[in-house]
Amino acid sequence: MAKITFIEHNGTKHEVDVDNGTSVMNAAIDNLVPGIDADCGGQCSCATCHVYIDSDWVAKAGSPDDQEESMLDLNPERQPNSRLSCQIPVTDELDGLVVTLPEFQF
């Protein structure tokens, strides 16, 4: 179980409790956090669950694998702390994770 904070582009905060094993993307969808589309349903194939990882959490959230990197790389709004949230499974380690949502998914 972990507490995750999503911050919308307009600053609105959503704190949600998430079971281990759930992806950060599904944590947002299950709790109706707006700003994540997840068009492919979590297969790392659409890049519409893009989030920015808070700087304190970048190392713990891990790095994108090759497929995720390919998808992120095509996004004009990609930043060094960009991740696709469907590729981050929640663990106890991530209790307290803070992610910011982009203005648009693309």
Partner: peptide, 18 residues
């Protein structure tokens, strides 16, 4: 409703979808 195949998936996913 957004979960459909019309835009394709992966690196060639429709660029003009939005």
């Amino acid at each position: 409703a957004r979960q459909h195949l019309s835009f394709g998936f992966g690196i060639h996913r429709c660029m003009g979808n939005r």
